[in-house]
Design a protein around this nucleic acid. Structure first.
Lengths: 228, 228
DNA sequence: CGGTGTGAATCTGTTCACAGCC
DNA sequence: GGCTGTGAACAGATTCACACCG
């Protein structure tokens, strides 16, 4: 379940000042889910709440962490120290959240040996060695689309157990390891689609060639009031 | 449908050298869907194929483009010229794909007036003006989480019609415009979850405190052979 | 009451299977 | 034979509704 991630964020955000207990309603409101959903999800990961009171915040946090495998830090190798790669490396928040970049690999000779976010950039042919010596769990791909598949193959061969892919390419790892894609283009297109069907494209339009029967769109999530 | 994006990518990738016709099977294979799915999806956006032959590639491309609103370019304002913001601005591919960043806004005095990807960075208080004068359609949020909600409010007030959010914060725009979240943390956690349940966490584990009943996991997508 | 836990009803999306076309 | 279009079966997830607890 991927709402768990959201619950976790909400539960953690509140900090120590908040009540030590949450109701499914509150949590759902904050995370964009219904109370029933929250109860089901929380039940699923094994948290039990107390009737009339709610769920103990820290119990919930721990259970979710464990359920999604975030109870111990993950060690990652970043392949690609270009724009996205450097942005990721610099994004310090990861460390707090249980992800540590322990090695950085890049192909470009110009950057080799330099440091990015305090880590020395190593050449491609040291990937396997790095994975082994640094105890890397997952590989992060931040290279141009054309190179992504090759990097993925190398990562899998080197023994990573999961791949996070920022390149705009569908990777084929033949089911050997899980792959999660973070696709900016797809995100933009999703947005474009939602926007243009929501208001029938009244955007700087010239002509509407085809009267394409775009299906009526029901507002997805019911509008949600700000917590405050 | 968000598979449409993928189909589009595949259809375009092939280039002019490829056959001008595709079967649902081919497309599905490349995009990670079943043939039936492809047929349903394509039918949904109004493409008709010819029996025994397949779908005309360019017809399909155009229909999908139209369906997801990508038949004309989108103009975006980027708020936040930090790491992620600059990476996005530098990611030239966007332009080819129908997204143009026409303005960049940042709060930090140190960067104001400087150019990022050939665009002058303007201060926050010029956001509304920029949106209007540049004919901005959507806003891209690439600021730290704490500032994201404020920026979102400003964007909506300024009249953007959609928001793409890279900050790790659930935005509340009260249903006024569509919001698409690109959440690195969530992506990493999804990966962590998949990895750890796939192989029962044999990762550098110390102890397994609780024998938490993690549900059996069926391999999600059936393994898919490389197109070549 | 406010809130949990959970079966039953419902909805949404996916797969199957097959008639029909080229 | 290869492939589309589509109704029907299916599966999964979401919501409902309600018994029960403090």
């Amino acid at each position: 379940m991927e709402r768990l991630s959201l619950y976790l964020r909400e539960l953690e955000r509140a900090g120590p000042d908040a009540a030590s207990t949450v109701s499914s309603r509150q949590l759902g409101l904050a995370a964009g889910a219904t109370d029933a959903q929250v109860r089901k999800d929380l039940g699923f990961v094994g948290v039990v709440g107390r009737s009339g009171v709610g769920y103990a915040r820290d119990r919930a946090v721990e259970a979710i962490r464990r359920a999604i495998g975030m109870h111990r830090p993950w060690r990652a190798v970043l392949v690609g120290a270009g724009n996205i790669g450097r942005a990721l490396a610099a994004y310090g928040r990861f460390r707090e959240e249980g992800f540590v970049i322990v090695a950085i690999i890049d192909r470009a000779p110009s950057i080799l040996g330099r440091q990015v976010a305090g880590i020395e950039v190593r050449p491609m042919d040291q990937l396997a060695r790095a994975v082994r010596s640094e105890g890397v769990d997952i590989g992060i791909i931040a290279v141009p689309g054309e190179e992504a598949q090759g990097v993925a193959d190398a990562l899998v061969a080197a023994g990573v157990r999961g791949v996070l892919n920022f390149a705009p390419t569908r990777l084929d790892v033949d089911g050997r390891v899980p792959v999660v894609e973070v696709d900016f283009r797809a995100a933009l297109e999703r947005l474009a689609a939602e926007v243009s069907q929501r208001d029938g494209d009244r955007r700087a339009a010239a002509t509407r060639p085809t009267g394409s029967a775009s299906p009526a769109v029901p507002a997805r999530r019911p509008p949600r009031r700000r917590p405050g």
